[in-house]
């Protein structure tokens, strides 16, 4: 499996994500700068990392969504490549329109940086197939704008189509229906606020995030 990690000015989880990709695939990911208009040939998995792309100017992810590389990412997603957006990456994917909804300021105003308990809501996707249905896992979050919002009809559709991948198992940021991660219609794009790449080595204090990367490799 060939992987790429997109790097924006202000990304700060790009190297962590690259390490997680390399551990899972045995191959170094391509690091792709935001000004690139094309991805290297044969990329199967694209990571859109966490951080503060463009200093969160205007809205988190809004400027990054307009960068040249995101057009290439959208094209690749349309052709079936896997796209994983984590934290700021999730915000970028909603701003790009690859995923529905928006990530708003946390209900409690404060930046939240801690381990949280999640429930695996869909264990059938390419990203989550190594989890059990309704399994509780621990993955850290670190965000200011993680409060997932979509209108009721969209939320109903996401739930009805099994497109909620993860839910918070505790109150975290005010997200609608406790949604922590959503899939696109094709199931090949996942956006999530928690950071699986920060829970994928024994030294991180757990391996709950590693299963997501391992699942992709076997998908």
């Amino acid at each position: 499996m060939n992987t790429a990690v997109i790097v924006f000015p202000g990304s700060n989880c790009d190297r962590d994500l690259a390490v997680a990709f390399e551990q899972a695939t045995g191959k170094k990911p391509h690091m792709v700068w935001h000004r690139e208009t094309e991805l290297p040939d044969g990329i199967d998995l694209i990571g859109v990392p966490g951080g503060f792309s463009y200093g969160d100017y205007l809205r988190s992810g809004a400027m990054a969504a307009q960068s040249p590389v995101m057009r290439a990412v959208s094209d690749a997603a349309a052709k079936g490549a896997y796209v994983l957006g984590i934290c700021n990456g999730f915000q970028v994917l909603t701003e790009t329109g690859l995923l529905p909804g928006a990530l708003m300021r946390n209900a409690g105003i404060q930046f939240i940086c801690r381990d949280v308990k999640l429930t695996v809501a869909n264990s059938q996707s390419a990203f989550t197939s190594q989890y059990q249905a309704d399994e509780e896992i621990i993955i850290p979050v670190a965000h200011h704008d993680g409060n997932y919002f979509a209108d009721a009809a969209t939320l109903d559709r996401l739930e009805g189509e099994g497109r909620v991948a993860f839910r918070y198992a505790e109150a975290v940021n005010g997200s609608a229906r406790n949604i922590a991660g959503v899939l696109n219609e094709g199931g090949n794009v996942l956006g999530m606020m928690p950071h699986p790449e920060r829970m994928s080595e024994a030294a991180h204090g757990g391996l709950d995030g590693k299963k997501l990367f391992d699942a992709l490799v076997s998908a």
Partner: peptide
């Protein structure tokens, strides 16, 4: 529509 506002919210 394209940038200044996110019309979802």
């Amino acid at each position: 529509k394209k940038l200044l506002a996110n019309t979802v919210i």
